[in-house]
Design a protein around this nucleic acid. Structure first.
Lengths: 342, 342
DNA sequence: CTGAAAGCGCTTACAG
DNA sequence: CTGAAAGCGCTTACAG
């Protein structure tokens, strides 16, 4: 077996396999690409030859020839610390990596924080080094999404895009339904003065969860008191701050629905420091069912987002889109997980 | 400009640039690869042509030709939840991505949890789809590391490898020195009965931090009491459990040095639940200075690991190794960060 | 310093 | 069903 200068064995090529199997390189290639138009005899010969030579396709050659890269990007725009701090992000990244791995497709992690980085990556992506992108972004007016779409790059976003007629694929949780279910649960527990800490209202999910909260207030004949609603930022510290404001504006609350578990951690902490007992004085309901939910006492009652399904769907849709299918939106149901906090 | 069926513009090739600049493709290529042997006149002509055409090199073609992929893998073996739960991991991943981006090198994130996955990825990597790997692993006997090394793949590990004469590059914090500094700090604060929660002793850093703790006990003339030492697993819950055991074995401790911030969170929690005040009854010192350190009350006194430098060094060393340099180990100093817990 | 040409390892009409 | 051949876009000795 050939050996290159650096000591690594030179890997076998399709030519080696063809020789070994006694067929042409074209036949080997056809076998590799679905096995159409190859006779049973040729097929077994090639199979044996591949096993014997330990052949693995050279992706660079294939990509050069096909124009496809067989890899996709996981693109993060805007404040990174935020994503990295959030367990949901980790779960999503892991899920996507795993689901792609099943298709033997590597995931390129790309972080676009600065404007410069964003330009560099956009160019990188649009110049074809990736077949599509899984987009995790927070802002509705994300310029990257628009640019990629305009360049015709297959793309699926996590979370329903807000902006104006943004026509790309997405997969999201049933935010409004989920919020409704949680608030109903709080009411069923006897709560009547229910506050809410929302996510940023310019980001996916934010407005929908707020709408769900309002739906149920109306449904239950409860008044809509604006002092009960405070906007947060999906961060823990944001939750603390929001709780302080809430307590100042509406000290008589007996429950609060928080639009993310991470913020809920902050809320619980602030409530406890203010001398309230959770859930005795104030019930707290979260959203996500992330690892954070069980990291505190009392354990958080929350709405589970089906992250594994979300990442699976994102991958499925992206691959479909790369294969030529049109865009679509997928909404996945959430599930109430009752623990101790509400 | 040519347009392919899917509507994307067909990107310009080196051929277009050559024509535009009035030189040969070889000259353009030479310009692209360092500009050696190209006259000033040719250089400017090519520069202009590149700008005008918007040319971007096709990496697949380049890779096929050079045999290099110009991308590296960030490889995670073994229990993933653990890494994803740990803020340190996030910081490392982010740092490596950023430092690589400066060299225009994309990072492929690879997760090898199952044995199957491990085999698949090893094959993937050894067949040349990546020029080198940044390895983040926990176990000393990690088979992947050995396999990659045997295959001659450039590799740098995070943390000093323990195993038998494992000869690959690594970058690590000065664990032993750091541990010493922390324990000296505890002693300086008047503590005499100092417990320790170690990391897994079969993983990088584990034994060294324990050794540092022991060094200072000896140095201070304090007795070595085995009941003062408990092994943890770098997880929060592991910290809680360790603290319980410690409290049972040595209820009279007045300080504990915990080998990671995440575990320290658990330790503080358990101590508080047992009715001890931190730091009044028991001082707690962590290790890492991760985001976790400031997420609790009291804020954690800890040893800062220079994660940004660590990731920078990992990238630098990997690139050097890919360029042909021999392996090496780099040790970076830690720094005491005094907050409230000790 | 520069051009012509071979070669990297695959895929894919094309002709049979 | 199969082989021969062109082509994907680059790099790199080679000869000048």
């Amino acid at each position: 077996m050939a050996t290159s200068p650096n000591g690594r064995r030179k890997p076998p090529t399709i030519h080696d396999v063809a020789r070994e199997a006694g067929v042409s390189r074209g036949t080997v290639s056809r076998f590799l690409n679905g096995g159409h138009y190859v006779s049973p005899a040729a097929r077994t010969a090639v199979e044996t030859a591949i096993r014997k030579t330990g052949y693995v396709v050279n992706r660079h050659a294939r990509s050069l020839s096909t124009g496809r890269s067989d890899s996709v990007a996981f693109l993060l725009t805007e404040p990174q610390e935020k994503f990295f701090e959030d367990p949901n992000f980790n779960v999503l990244l892991r899920g996507c990596t795993e689901h792609l791995a099943r298709h033997d497709i590597p995931l390129l992690l790309m972080l676009a924080s600065s404007k410069d980085e964003r330009r560099r990556l956009t160019r990188y992506i649009t110049s074809g080094h990736v077949d599509g992108v899984l987009l995790v972004s927070n802002h509705s007016g994300d310029p990257v999404a628009a640019e990629l779409r305009d360049a015709g790059i297959p793309l699926v976003a996590c979370g329903k895009p807000l902006g104006t007629a943004s026509k790309y694929s997405y997969v999201a949780a049933a935010d409004r339904d989920g919020a409704q279910e949680m608030v109903r649960h709080l009411i069923a527990g006897g709560r009547r003065r229910i506050g809410m800490v929302t996510g940023p209202l310019d980001a996916p999910g934010g407005p929908d969860r707020l709408a769900g909260y309002r739906d149920v207030l109306t449904e239950a004949g409860l008044p809509h008191d604006p002092t009960l609603v405070v906007e947060g930022d999906y961060r823990r510290t944001g939750g603390e701050e929001a709780a302080r404001r809430l307590l100042a504006q509406a000290p008589d609350i007996d429950a609060v629905f928080v639009a993310s578990d991470l913020m809920a951690l902050g809320v619980v902490n602030t409530l406890q420091q203010s001398g309230r007992s959770v859930p005795d004085d104030i019930a707290v309901g979260g959203f996500d069912d992330s690892a954070a939910a069980t990291s505190i006492t009392p354990a958080l009652t929350t709405m589970r987002q089906p992250y594994d399904r979300i990442s699976a769907e994102m991958v499925r849709m992206l691959l479909a889109q790369i294969a030529g299918e049109d865009t679509a939106g997928v909404i996945l149901p959430t599930e109430l997980v009752v623990r101790e906090s509400a």
